[in-house]
Amino acid sequence: MTIEVWTWPTPNGHKVHIALEELDLPYTVVPVNIGAGEQFRDDFLAITPNHRIPAIVDPDGPGGKPLSLFESGAILVYLAEKAGRLVPADPAARYACLQWLMFQMGGVGPMFGQYGHFHSYAPERIPYAMDRYAKEVQRLHRVLEKRLSGSEYLAGDEYSIADIATFPWIRLPERRGIDLAHYPAVQRWHDAIAARPAVRRGVEVLSERQRRGPMTDQERENMFGATQFKVR
């Protein structure tokens, strides 16, 4: 049965696209245009009360019953366990995988997102915020560099959902003022993952719907303004 993926072409969306492609799980895409405010539609809120992409609906969930799930990290764990791949079987390696997955969820994603907001989308330039998140992005790259200098992948010798979660945030480093030449181990890891056919397919999902050009006032309101704080 086909998994519905409610998504948009963002790093968090790409995580799930890549995982589905790597795991050969059949899926259909339900676009949720976050610039147009579609994340606030009732049908999407019925799946995720947090009105953030991505979310999935698996008609063949545990026990053969439908399952809806939000939060990209939880989705990756679910998909990997459903397919029996991309999470190491060895207990120590499994916890290493989950550790680096949580590192992405709690560190890389939020901090890189704040960098993008204050450097590209905030209505006013706030030097303190811009400097803080630029330094945090650099620090997190140093953490990854140290890990990948001694390990082929984040969880160890095996490619896993920890790598899938992190890669979309590391690609296009120029958007965060990063030159991967300063992080050779991260560069090696990035290039190896970018060359994977499933990854190439995953980052192309909804690429034709990607916003081009400056953000409009309405898009800014839908993504960062008071609309998201409305009581629902």
Rank of each mutant, 00 (worst) to 15 (best):
A93D: 13
A93Q: 10
A93H: 06
Y95L: 14
Y95D: 13
Y95G: 06
A96S: 13
C97W: 05
C97E: 04
C97T: 08
C97V: 02
L98Q: 02
L98C: 10
Q99D: 13
Q99V: 02
W100P: 04
M102K: 15
M102V: 12
M102L: 14
F103V: 00
F103D: 12
F103N: 05
Q104K: 05
Q104P: 02
M105R: 00
M105V: 07
M105K: 00
G106D: 03
G107D: 00
G107K: 01
V108H: 05
V108F: 11
G109H: 09
P110V: 11
P110G: 12
M111Q: 07
F112D: 07
F112V: 15
Q114D: 06
Q114M: 02
Q114L: 11
G116A: 07
F118A: 02
H119I: 14
H119E: 11
H119G: 10
H119V: 09
S120W: 15
S120L: 10
Y121V: 15
A122F: 03
A122E: 14
P123T: 14
E124V: 04
E124R: 07
R125Q: 02
I126W: 07
P127A: 06
P127C: 01
Y128D: 12
A129P: 10
M130G: 08
M130S: 08
M130V: 14
D131I: 07
D131Q: 08
D131W: 03
R132P: 01
R132N: 01
A134C: 07
A134K: 02
V137T: 05
R139A: 00
L140G: 00
L140W: 09
L140M: 06
L140Y: 07
H141S: 02
H141Q: 08
H141L: 08
H141R: 01
R142N: 09
R142E: 15
R142K: 14
V143H: 13
L144C: 06
L144P: 01
E145H: 06
E145P: 10
K146G: 12
K146I: 14
K146S: 15
R147W: 08
R147D: 09
R147Q: 10
L148F: 12
L148T: 07
L148P: 00
S149C: 00
S149H: 12
G150Q: 08
S151N: 11
S151F: 06
E152R: 13
L154C: 10
L154E: 05
L154F: 10
L154N: 05
A155E: 01
A155C: 09
E158S: 15
E158V: 08
Y159M: 04
Y159G: 11
S160P: 13
S160V: 12
S160C: 09
I161D: 00
A162T: 03
A162V: 01
A162I: 04
A162D: 04
A162L: 01
A162S: 00
D163Y: 05
D163Q: 12
I164A: 04
I164R: 03
A165S: 04
T166I: 02
T166F: 02
T166Y: 06
T166G: 01
F167T: 11
P168M: 02
W169F: 08
R171S: 09
R171D: 13
L172T: 14
L172I: 15
R175M: 15
R176W: 10
R176D: 15
G177S: 03
I178G: 11
I178A: 13
D179L: 02
L180P: 00
A181Y: 04
A181S: 14
H182A: 15
Y183V: 08
Y183N: 12
P184K: 01
P184V: 03
P184A: 08
A185Q: 03
A185D: 07
